[in-house]
C-alpha cells in the first residue's frame, strides 16, 4: 500500500512520544505481578503474612500454587483486562486526532485516508502484540521467582499459544472501538462501548450464549475449572470475524466519507 510505511512511522512516533505507551506498559505488568503474588501467598501463607503481604492467613483451599493455576489466572486476567487495555489503546490512537483537532491534517494529503486508518490499525496490532509478549515473559519470570511446581515446556507452549489467541480475538473486536472513537470524536464513546461489551460478555456467559457473542469469545479459551479448555467452536470464530469485518468497514467508511466539520 503506497504510503503505508511513512504513515506507520508517523503513528509510531506519536505513540512513542505519548504517556499512553508508558501507562499501558505499566498496566500490562500488573497482571503477571498480581498473579505471581497470588501464587506466593497460596504457596506459603504464613511467610506472606510475616512479610506484611496479607493481614490474615489466607484460606484459599481451592487454589494451588503451581504453573497450571498460574497460567489459568494469567489467561483469565488477559481475557478480561485485555478487552479494556486494548480498547484504551485503540481509543487513544483514533480519538486523539479529534481531541487534539489534528484529524483535519490527515484528510487532504497525498496519503490516502484508508492508508492512514490501516497504519493506525497496524500500530494497534503491534502494540497489542508487544503487551501480550510482555505479559507472558513477565509471567514466566514471576513464576520462576516464586518457584512454583508443575511447569513443563508443553504447558508453557500451550499457554503461550492460548494467550496469543486470546489477544488476537480481543484485537479483532477493536475496529468497533476505532469506529466509535472516530464517530464520537474522542475517548468517551469508545471506552463506554468497551465497558458495555465487557459487561454484556459476562451476562452472555451466565445466560449460556457466550459462544454466539463475539466479545465473549476470548474467555471461551480459558477453562474455569483448571482443566484444559476445549477448542473454540467454529461458529464463535465466525461471529468474531463478522464483528471484525463490520467494525473495520464502518471505520473505513467513516474516514472515507463522513463530514469532518470540526
Amino acid at each position: 500500500m503506497n504510503g503505508f510505511f511513512p504513515a506507520l512511522w508517523a503513528e509510531a512516533l506519536k505513540a512513542r512520544r505519548s504517556k499512553i505507551l508508558i501507562l499501558t506498559t505499566a498496566a500490562a505488568t500488573i497482571l503477571p505481578i498480581i498473579d505471581g503474588l497470588f501464587m506466593f501467598i497460596i504457596k506459603d501463607p504464613e511467610r506472606a503474612k510475616s512479610m506484611g503481604l496479607i493481614n490474615v492467613k489466607a484460606q484459599i483451599t481451592a487454589a494451588v500454587a503451581d504453573w497450571p493455576t498460574f497460567f489459568q489466572v494469567l489467561l483469565l486476567g488477559a481475557a478480561i483486562a485485555g478487552a479494556i487495555l486494548f480498547a484504551f489503546i485503540t481509543a487513544w490512537v483514533f480519538g486523539r486526532e479529534h481531541s487534539d483537532r489534528t484529524a483535519k491534517e490527515l484528510l487532504a494529503t497525498p496519503t490516502r485516508r484508508e492508508t492512514i486508518v490501516t497504519a493506525k490499525l497496524a500500530l494497534i496490532s503491534l502494540w497489542v502484540l508487544g503487551i501480550t509478549l510482555l505479559i507472558f515473559v513477565l509471567g514466566l519470570g514471576m513464576g520462576a521467582v516464586v518457584d512454583i511446581p508443575g511447569g513443563s515446556p508443553e504447558l508453557i507452549r500451550e499457554s503461550f499459544g492460548t494467550l496469543l489467541l486470546i489477544s488476537l480475538l480481543t484485537l479483532l473486536m477493536m475496529p468497533f472501538v476505532a469506529f466509535f472513537a472516530s464517530a464520537g470524536r474522542g475517548y468517551l464513546l469508545p471506552l463506554g462501548w468497551a465497558v458495555l461489551t465487557l459487561a454484556a460478555a459476562q451476562i452472555m456467559g451466565v445466560l449460556g450464549w457466550a459462544e454466539w457473542f463475539p466479545w465473549a469469545a476470548p474467555a471461551l479459551l480459558v477453562s474455569m475449572d483448571g482443566g484444559p479448555a476445549g477448542p473454540i467452536p467454529a461458529h464463535s470464530l465466525v461471529v468474531v470475524l463478522i464483528a471484525f469485518l463490520v467494525g473495520t468497514m464502518a471505520t473505513f467508511a467513516w474516514w472515507r466519507g463522513s463530514d469532518q466539520a470540526r
Binding site: W9, A10, R17, P110
Partner: peptide
C-alpha cells in the same frame, strides 16, 4: 500534536505529503 516537537510535527507532514 502537542507532545511532538515542531520538527517532528513537520516530519510527519513531510512523510504524509
Amino acid at each position: 500534536y502537542p507532545e511532538l516537537s515542531v520538527r517532528e510535527n513537520l516530519e510527519i507532514a513531510r512523510r504524509l505529503q
